[in-house]
Design a binder for these strands. Structure first.
Lengths: 198, 198
DNA sequence: ACACACATGTAATTGGTTACATGATTTC
DNA sequence: GAAATCATGTAACCAATTACATGTGTGT
């Protein structure tokens, strides 16, 4: 009966909106929490089976048949209890792994243009995400009254926006550094000595 | 000859400081890039073997023997080339998974105190990290002249600090929201209906 | 006719963590 | 004498991604 993160994500989404299929859950994830959470079909469908077998969710509605069939699920009381218990425990602080920062950290082993390209990639992604979050916020303000989860959703949104804006600001100063004399000089110095036998 | 992230992390660290053992590499990771990167022994030692077999690193120094023995490695020319090639490719944008935000997103399914506890946990972690980064920055300024990688290291540091400070600021406003009438009200409303068969 | 969204699922692979096992050396 | 750090390594496990397989319905 051990449940992984994906399981709790599904329980939570079904608590907000019951009677969803695997396909719909995945779309909901993408469109609402996509900027801080992701799920793939390869994870969702088996997890749905598992949660159902454990009695934490139950199939509610079936539409169509055979290859064209939509199976929807809802939370059971046990599933809701499980979700609440999970919510009540401290969140897991998993080890960070940021390849962007790692490449930047090693930046002096390459030409400055390489790091500049990474920052460009970063800025593009950030700007894209920021646009998405702004849309999300606007939509939330319009259609969101009556939705009891809204204050919490907005909290995650404002978190994301704060992080993104800070990242964008930093990236400007990073650009300044990378186009400076200092960076060019650092990159032009010879690398540390190698071992023989290449 | 396919190398994973851990491999590149090791190559990069050996490019900065040659002649390091697995143990030292792990310490270096923890103490210098620990706020955005982590490595475990279970990953480091097998990877060192592999990189060595592939000729990207080579054993340079051995100290002691038997159970007490330190095996150090350095980059080969091929390893440095591999590192540079990796640096020159766009960084991988892996799917985000932030359990903190997920729990906060589902916050209305629990009592407000639950979410407040999460924010407290968050603030504590952030403040701890911020202190670490400030130390790191101070140390860098003192002993860091002559280190050609310094500008890049400082870039990752300022990135981290920017993110942390933005997070801290956000957390204050989040606290205000969570202690408000609005939050209490949202949490007191009944959950969405369950399926039968619990 | 073609592409895209709908819809469910499996299999292979990966890249990692955690726990375990062992022992020497240093510090309090 | 206990605890922490130094030091290397293996085995079990895990949760996830990716690619594959299959087919329907809708819009252009």
């Amino acid at each position: 009966m051990r449940i992984a993160q994906t399981g709790y994500a599904i329980l939570g989404l079904l608590a907000i909106e019951p009677n969803q299929s695997g396909y719909e859950i995945r779309r909901t994830v993408r469109d609402s929490v996509g900027f801080f959470w992701g799920e793939s079909y390869g994870q969702i469908y088996p997890t749905l089976k598992r949660l159902s077998a454990d009695g934490l969710i139950a199939p509610t509605e079936v539409e169509g048949a055979g290859k064209k069939r939509t199976q929807r699920y809802s939370l059971t009381a046990a599933g809701y209890a499980e979700l609440q218990q999970w919510l009540a425990t401290p969140y897991r602080e998993d080890p960070p792994r940021d390849e962007f920062l790692l490449k930047l950290f090693f930046g002096r082993e390459a030409a400055p243009e390489i790091s500049i390209a990474h920052i460009n990639q970063y800025q593009e992604r950030i700007r894209g995400l920021l646009a998405v979050l702004e849309d999300l916020e606007r939509l939330g303000r319009l259609h969101g009254s009556g939705q009891p989860g809204m204050p919490f959703w907005m909290l995650t949104l404002s978190y994301g926006m704060g992080q993104l804006r800070a990242g964008l600001e930093w990236s400007e100063s990073a650009m300044a550094v990378l186009t400076s004399q200092e960076a060019a000089q650092a990159c032009s110095q010879p690398p540390a000595p190698f071992a023989p036998q290449g």
